[in-house]
Design a binder for these strands. Sequence first.
DNA 1: TGGAATGTTGGAAC
DNA 2: CGTTCCAACATTCC
Length: 277
Amino acid sequence: MPEGPSIVILREEAARFAGRTIVRAGGNSKAVDYAALAGQPIVALRSWGKHFLIQLPDRVLRIHLLMFGSYRINERKDAEPRLSLVFEDGEEFNFYTCSVKTLPPDLDAQYDWSADVMSDQWSARVALKKLRARPEMLVCDATLDQEIFSGAGNIFKNEVLFRIRVHPLSAVGALPAAKQRELVEQMRVYAFDFLRWKKAFVLKQHWLAHTKRLCPRCEIPFLKAHLGKTHRRSFYCERCQKLYASGADARPTGPGRPAASGRTKARAPARPAAESR
DNA sequence: TGGAATGTTGGAAC
DNA sequence: CGTTCCAACATTCC
């Protein structure tokens, strides 16, 4: 469910509840005062990137579906909801395995709407400025940075970097200005491609890089590695995607392999057995 | 079948 | 004390 466009779909499906009053709330989240919700009307349903925001008169419920979250309208899953809202006529809105937080009511004071790639208030200019302030950052990390591209996720990263033919280990500051601009523009373009394809249940069919084995352009095998600070899966073509090395890595001689690239393998072993105490 | 994944976070480690 | 790192969380799919 998770990337920004999926949350826009959630918001659209939830629009029916705007203006309605919660008569009962429950769930297994520890971050919600359920009793306080009863009697409160839903003032607005909003989103910021991957955050789904339920605006009440005196607070906001922030839902993040993380990797595995889900929701149902007028249905239940065979599991305890993390948050369940029931309305006058018995209609219900249930959320499962998500993160719920209660926020103060003034959302404009808490969110930079210009960062949300799905928002009417999205600003390419502001995103570009944030990028240029972080020249050392790798593009594989920048494309996942929610302060810059709120709502973008790993699918965005792989698809956009393939589209603009930039290697994931390129440094933001090493990209020519026109490439930086292209990156920002394509993040926004892909966001709406994603939304359209997701609604039509054809999102996966349109993946060119994410989870793919072969480059659709030159047909050599994609490389797959967990790169950057985020260690998230990258699928990329060494032939088609150009590596723009950072100043520090750029050597006058040699092909300029990225210095300390993503780790080679195996993360630490699983945790030791829980202590009894 | 088990490992990995559209993600974030709290707290440990340095 | 600020910054970085990583394990935990939990469900679904291949």
